[in-house]
C-alpha cells in the first residue's frame, strides 16, 4: 500500500482511505446538512439544531444499548417496548398510586434493567438466538405495559416531572445533557475499560476471546443488562415528554436505534463499532426527519427516504472498508 503514492486532497491514498473509513459517515452527514441548509437556511439556526439534538436523545440512548448488543454479534429488539413498560409503570406507581416520583423512576428503571438481564441471560446461558429472544421479550414487555395501564393513557403531570424533558441547564435543554453524560460514560466504557475490550473481543472472534480467558457469558449478559438500563432512562425521558403513561409509545423505536448504529459504523458481523459513531448515526437520523420536514417532503415519503439513505450509507461504508483491508 505504501508504494502507491497517488495523492488525494494532499494525503496519500493509504492515509486518505483510512481517513474516509473513520470519518466517511460524518462527511455524509455534513454534506446532508449543507444541502438542506442551502435550500432552507433556517435549518442551521442554533435553535433548530438544539431542537434536533433534543429530539434524538431518546433514540441515542437506545442506540448505545443496541450498539453493545450488535457489537457482540447480537441484536436487541426489546428497547421500544421497554419505553412503554417504563412509562406505564411510572404512570401506575406515581400517578395512580401516588408514590414518590423518584422512587417510581428507580423502580421503573430497575424493571427495564431486569428485562435486559433476562435477555442477556437467555442468550448467553442457553445460546439462544438474540433475534428470537428479544423479539419474544418485546411481545411480553409490550403486553405487560398494556396490562398495567389497561390500555389507557395515565396522565403524568405530577409536580415538575415534565421538566425532566422540557427543562434547561443554561441555554441547553436537559435531554441534551443526559445524552452528553451517557455518551461520555459509554465512550469510557467501550473504549477505555477492560469490559469494552472484552465486548469487542467477544464480537470479533468468540473463540479467540475464550482462549484468551474472557468470560463470554458475563460479557454478553452485561451488554444486554446495560441496554435495558439505558432503555429505562430513555423511558423516563419519553414519559416526561408525553406527560402520560402509555402502552403504545416507542413502537418501531428499535428500528431507529438499529439504523443509528449501522449508520455510525457498527458492523453486524460483530466486533466493530465506536461510541462517537453511534452519536453521529443518531444525529443523522434526526437530521433526516427534520431535514425532510424543512424540505416539505410528505411524511409518507420520509420512511422511504430513510431506508434508501441507510442502504446507500452502508454501501459506501463497505466499499471504503473493503479498500482498507
Amino acid at each position: 500500500m505504501a508504494s502507491n503514492n497517488k495523492k488525494i486532497m494532499g494525503m496519500d491514498q493509504d492515509k486518505f482511505s483510512m481517513f474516509l473509513s473513520k470519518y466517511g459517515i460524518t462527511l455524509v452527514l455534513l454534506v446532508m446538512i449543507i444541502i438542506v441548509a442551502i435550500i432552507q437556511p433556517r435549518f442551521i439556526a442554533p435553535a433548530n439544531l438544539l431542537n434536533i439534538l433534543t429530539q434524538i436523545s431518546v433514540n441515542c440512548l437506545l442506540a448505545f444499548g443496541m450498539c453493545l448488543a450488535i457489537t457482540t454479534g447480537g441484536i436487541e429488539l426489546t428497547v421500544g417496548a421497554q419505553l412503554a413498560l417504563v412509562s406505564c409503570i411510572l404512570g401506575a406507581l406515581a400517578s395512580k398510586g401516588g408514590m414518590n416520583i423518584v422512587l417510581a423512576c428507580v423502580i421503573a428503571v430497575g424493571v427495564a434493567t431486569l428485562f435486559g438481564f433476562i435477555n442477556g441471560f437467555l442468550i448467553s446461558k442457553f445460546n439462544m438466538f438474540p433475534f428470537v429472544v428479544t423479539l419474544s421479550t418485546q411481545l411480553i414487555t409490550r403486553s405487560l405495559a398494556q396490562i398495567i395501564s389497561n390500555g389507557q393513557a395515565i396522565p403524568m403531570s405530577i409536580g415538575n416531572f415534565p421538566q425532566v424533558y422540557s427543562g434547561y441547564l443554561g441555554p441547553i435543554p436537559l435531554p441534551i445533557i443526559y445524552m452528553l453524560v451517557v455518551f461520555v460514560v459509554m465512550y469510557i466504557l467501550m473504549h477505555q475499560t477492560r469490559f469494552g475490550r472484552y465486548v469487542y473481543a467477544v464480537g470479533g472472534n468468540v473463540n479467540a476471546a475464550i482462549a484468551s480467558g474472557v468470560n463470554v457469558f458475563w460479557v454478553r449478559t452485561a451488554c444486554y443488562t446495560i441496554s435495558g438500563f439505558l432503555a429505562g432512562l430513555a423511558g423516563i425521558i419519553i414519559t416526561a415528554k408525553t406527560t402520560s403513561g402509555q402502552s403504545n409509545i416507542g413502537i418501531g423505536y428499535e428500528t431507529d436505534a438499529v439504523a443509528a448504529c449501522v449508520l455510525g459504523g457498527t458492523s453486524f458481523a460483530g466486533g466493530i463499532s465506536t461510541a462517537p459513531g453511534v452519536v453521529i448515526g443518531a444525529i443523522m437520523i434526526g437530521c433526516i426527519y427534520t431535514g425532510m420536514n424543512f424540505l416539505r417532503i410528505g411524511s409518507y415519503y420520509q420512511q422511504l427516504a430513510k431506508g434508501l439513505i441507510i442502504i446507500g450509507a452502508i454501501m459506501l461504508d463497505m466499499a471504503v472498508s473493503k479498500k482498507n483491508r
Binding site: 475490550r197 469487542y200 473481543a201 470479533g204 472472534n205 473463540n207 479467540a208 476471546a209 475464550i210 482462549a211 484468551s212 480467558g213 474472557v214 458492523s267 458481523a269 466486533g271 466493530i272
Partner: peptide, 17 residues
Amino acid sequence: GYGLCLQRSLRENISLP
C-alpha cells in the same frame, strides 16, 4: 479460529489476555 480478532488492532489483541 482461536488466535486473533482480525478486525481489531494488534494492541488490543496483544493485551487481551
